[in-house]
Computed example of a mutant assay.
Amino acid sequence: MKKIILFAFSAFLALLAGCTADSFAPVAIPNHYSVKPPEPVNERDLTEQLKKLHTPDTSPYKITPGDQFDITVYEHPELTVRQIIVTPDGFVSAPLIGPVKIGGLSLVEATEALKKQISQYIRKPLVSLIPIRINGYNFTIVGRVNVPGCYPISIGNTRLIDAVAMARGLSEGLFHGDTVELADLENAYISRDGRLLPVNFQKALLRGDPLHNIPLKNGDYIYIPSVMNSTVALLGQVGKPTYVGFKEGMTVLQALPYGGGLRETHSDEIKVIRGGLKNPVVYTVNVTKMQEGKIMDFPLQANDIVYVPADGISDWNVIVRKILPSLQGLSMLAGPFGNPSAYWSND
């Protein structure tokens, strides 16, 4: 009888132990993400791309608002106009003919437009359109330079080194009593027409490599970050794209509330871009599964970019075109030096 009772008690304990293991043990949450490593650099292709960037721009200048001209009509001084400024909608106004739209035209085309109007009152007029000040060819440089801003371009003659010189050089600061350069040339970039150019700032500015010292074009945007930055950028389908002060141990779900959380239009899969924009590592993580506790929250690092698309895009060039305007806007809002650390919340 005692053996039967002892056997039954042992069986009960075994059953209890089995239930405990199955029902009350902690559940392991998987750490799941996909990763796109940096693309291998083909030096031959890179050299060819850089050589193409040195090709002279032969397209004629197009008149833009704010440009200033003198208009003269030979043997008719009464029709001469000095220092006339092109209006925001592209017009200039001259005696006898009134307003004429020349915005968006080349100098030759604009001269012909004026000549056509004046010829209604004067036979075969000789008209000259003389540029006094040109505003339409500019580049923007922000970040760790001493005087960031928008500067004019001399076509074919303004190169990357000239741009930094016009901005009074790279900014410096004090660290433990020593003067140190604050510019992060490794992650600096030039964007043109929504794409990044394969320019190495260290080679151009520090080693004097003429191949990377490219001529600038109208609308080029140069950003030189700070080596002291310790932020995370939140972009895309968030309430408010912004920079967040990085803290050790920060994760995706901890960072998103600083940007106002996710919009209803967000994709389940988000991108974490690490290592700058030129040739980064791109992680794809499912934010919905993280919120539901089905996979682990993704750990961030300083200077990561968290991009929340509205769809499941994967092509890197498409991602760059979508995030560059936001990054440039945040850099312009970040203070006189385009330093994101002046713009984030670190509560």
Score class of each variant (00 low, 15 high):
residue 201 F to N: 09
residue 153 I to L: 03
residue 206 L to A: 08
residue 126 L to P: 01
residue 122 I to G: 00
residue 339 N to A: 07
residue 9 F to Y: 14
residue 194 G to A: 09
residue 112 E to Y: 01
residue 110 A to R: 01
residue 207 R to P: 01
residue 48 E to N: 05
residue 215 P to A: 05
residue 181 E to T: 02
residue 247 K to T: 15
residue 242 T to Q: 04
residue 227 V to Q: 15
residue 340 P to Y: 00
residue 92 V to E: 04
residue 67 D to T: 09
residue 180 V to L: 06
residue 270 I to Y: 05
residue 54 H to P: 07
residue 319 I to H: 04
residue 51 K to Y: 00
residue 120 Q to V: 02
residue 286 N to V: 08
residue 249 G to T: 05
residue 25 A to K: 12
residue 43 E to W: 05
residue 42 N to Y: 07
residue 155 I to C: 07
residue 40 P to S: 06
residue 126 L to G: 02
residue 314 S to M: 12
residue 194 G to K: 02
residue 55 T to I: 11
residue 327 L to W: 00
residue 90 G to H: 08
residue 187 N to P: 01
residue 330 L to V: 12
residue 333 L to R: 12
residue 170 L to G: 05
residue 324 L to A: 08
residue 101 K to Y: 00
residue 322 K to I: 12
residue 69 F to Q: 07
residue 343 Y to D: 14
residue 233 A to Y: 10
residue 217 K to E: 10
residue 202 Q to L: 00
residue 306 V to E: 03
residue 107 L to M: 11
residue 269 E to A: 06
residue 185 L to I: 01
residue 88 P to Q: 05
residue 266 H to C: 11
residue 251 T to V: 03
residue 11 A to K: 07
residue 302 A to S: 12
residue 298 F to A: 03
residue 161 I to R: 15
residue 68 Q to M: 13
residue 260 G to N: 06
residue 313 I to Q: 09
residue 101 K to M: 07
residue 314 S to K: 13
residue 188 A to D: 07
residue 300 L to N: 08
residue 59 S to A: 15
residue 130 I to S: 06
residue 227 V to G: 15
residue 329 G to N: 09
residue 40 P to Y: 10
residue 207 R to S: 10
residue 262 L to Y: 01
residue 117 Q to N: 12
residue 293 G to H: 06
residue 250 M to Q: 09
residue 193 D to E: 09
residue 168 R to F: 03
residue 67 D to L: 05
residue 322 K to D: 10
residue 298 F to N: 02
residue 239 G to V: 04
residue 176 H to A: 07
residue 148 P to T: 04
residue 28 A to V: 14
residue 263 R to T: 13
residue 138 N to A: 10
residue 144 R to D: 06
residue 260 G to C: 04
residue 195 R to A: 08
residue 151 Y to A: 00
residue 106 S to A: 10
residue 285 V to C: 00
residue 4 I to M: 08
residue 41 V to R: 13
residue 172 E to F: 05
residue 83 Q to W: 00
residue 284 T to I: 14
residue 166 M to Y: 14
